[in-house]
């Protein structure tokens, strides 16, 4: 009896660690993989927008926005690597609070919606500035002109919603609109609208669920 009990204990001592070993050995791995592999993030148009600021008549700053940005990003949730972005805005989604002004901005003197219906940013490289804070370089295509720009991007948070995990970003950059052929109001009429446009891009996206 004693021999049998000892044999059982011996067997248990050998088998249990062997059978549990994979659990302990592999348990941190998926977590580690999830942390280091970039998560695919699809932007939620309802909570993604771009806000622009331009000086009016050399006086006040005028703000407008582009609603419903779409696109994707990739970013490891532990911030171990840089985010990448592919963001698109439809020109017809411009919203200044004035239907008349929206029409003017969509017209050929500004964004020329009929010929250039979208604005796109695609990141190419990034450099860390701080924790969850990156300097992202990429191509901005506006009015058919593509130029490299540098944006200051911050991960604003990782949250949980009814549909799953969400990540927020805020990116800021400044462009000279004349570089993109949008010259109306800079020299003619002189000083009607500033050349410098400051952009703030607020993005929120859903993290793709890991495949099981």
């Amino acid at each position: 009896m004693t021999t049998m009990r000892n044999a059982f204990l011996l067997a248990a001592a050998v088998v249990l660690p062997v059978s549990l070993a994979p659990m302990f050995a592999t348990a941190p791995v998926p977590a580690r993989q999830a942390a280091t592999e970039a998560s695919a993030i699809t932007f939620d148009p309802v909570h993604s927008m771009a806000i622009f600021r331009v000086q009016h008549l050399g006086a006040g700053y005028f703000y407008g926005r582009f609603n419903e940005l779409t696109g994707t990003a990739t970013w490891p949730l532990d911030d171990s690597a840089a985010p990448t972005f592919d963001v698109t805005s439809e020109v017809k989604k411009v919203d200044t609070g004035s239907e008349k002004l929206d029409g003017n901005l969509q017209g050929p003197s500004f964004f020329n919606q009929a010929e250039f219906p979208t604005i796109q940013f695609k990141s190419k490289s990034a450099e860390r500035i701080g924790e969850r804070h990156w300097k992202v370089k990429g191509d901005l295509t506006l009015r058919g002109v593509t130029k490299e720009i540098e944006t200051d991007c911050t991960v604003t948070g990782i949250g949980k919603g009814p549909t799953g995990q969400k990540v927020g970003f805020e990116c800021m950059f400044t462009i000279m609109r004349a570089d993109y052929g949008m010259k109306w109001g800079i020299e003619a009429p002189k000083g009607a609208l500033g050349n410098e446009v400051r952009m703030t891009i607020a993005l929120e996206g859903d993290v793709a669920k890991a495949k099981e």
Partner: peptide
């Protein structure tokens, strides 16, 4: 008239 319509339509240049 065309100038006025273009102005209404947000096409300042035209």
């Amino acid at each position: 008239i065309l100038a006025a319509l273009a102005g209404i339509g947000g096409f300042a240049s035209l």
